[in-house]
Design a protein around this nucleic acid. Sequence first.
DNA 1: AAAAAAATCGTACATTGTACGAGTCAATCA
DNA 2: TGATTGACTCGTACAATGTACGATTTTTTT
Lengths: 178, 178
Amino acid sequence: MRRLADRLGSGVMSLYWHIDTKEDVFDLALDAVLKYRGFSQTGELGEWRAEVVHMLEDWRVCMLRHPWSASLLPSRALGANMLRRLELLGSSLSRAGVADADLNVAIWSLWNHVLGATVTRASFDLSDEDKAAAQQRLTHLSERYPTIERSRLLLENDWDGTFRKGLDFLLDGLTPKL
Amino acid sequence: MRRLADRLGSGVMSLYWHIDTKEDVFDLALDAVLKYRGFSQTGELGEWRAEVVHMLEDWRVCMLRHPWSASLLPSRALGANMLRRLELLGSSLSRAGVADADLNVAIWSLWNHVLGATVTRASFDLSDEDKAAAQQRLTHLSERYPTIERSRLLLENDWDGTFRKGLDFLLDGLTPKL
DNA sequence: AAAAAAATCGTACATTGTACGAGTCAATCA
DNA sequence: TGATTGACTCGTACAATGTACGATTTTTTT
């Protein structure tokens, strides 16, 4: 709070006129990060899939731009912008023909994909020294974890591609075939 | 740290003989939570799918038993028990016939499902007053989020069922048909 | 019995969130 | 015009926290 006040050129206690508690700052910050400016591309009306992909990728990018946002997510209530994204996701899937009975599973599976990918990615945004230590530890244990080692799962993974492929797969499977 | 020392009946600074920093306690606690005692069921050898489902559900249950564990995950290096689970997952999928090129996507998609479901679930483990406030806020905004409201996405969702269905779907799609 | 190692712990300090109440300033009302 | 109210700022103070430092005790080894 002291550092924030300094940055704003104000006294510390002035902040507390506008917010009740430090947690509120986190709530507001997270919500600000998750603001969605909508579908910029001039796609066809009814192009639900492009819109969903755009929104979900944007979601992930927004959070990766501010790595602290991932660590704020657990045990925090849903902000307005997150609700908006969930609503957009749900209505798109519904329009795409997902049955009501499957809607929750579809929404949450896609959301889990974004969230999991974000948090996982954040775990690998280590400082250089931590990264070196992890490298050290992993090569040392490579014979104990042959599959991880062989698949280059941890240190040299193409996170963007993995996310995109998984997303495509989920959308292929969760929505009815045409 | 003071509370932990009290619980252990020791002085605060005695703790620092065994650990370097408070963060280390969190690392160790998280790793302890994620310990996997293996496949208790006496299933057939080669029943890779039952083993994977068992391990992933156990993973989720372990973390839900200690809600703080979800908030520890981001920006933390992978512990030994987590690596073991990832290795088990990877080798099972490999044995099941997943091509090397698809292995990373499969592993991370399943892991994202567990992680996302856990973190999401943790966001809804609110105190009673918070839950009441959320209920209030949501019913108030229900006309703005019709899909969310209609699908009972947030407050009355069957989390276990949603997780299980999504998991089955992922495994169906990610592994080759027989 | 002595020396070394392992472990314990009291004191002290810097950093944190924020309660309290006094202060400033502008808009509104008399 | 002067008084009053509300919005907003901020300095001081306090309790809670992680942990550095160094002294002390206990255990193990020689």
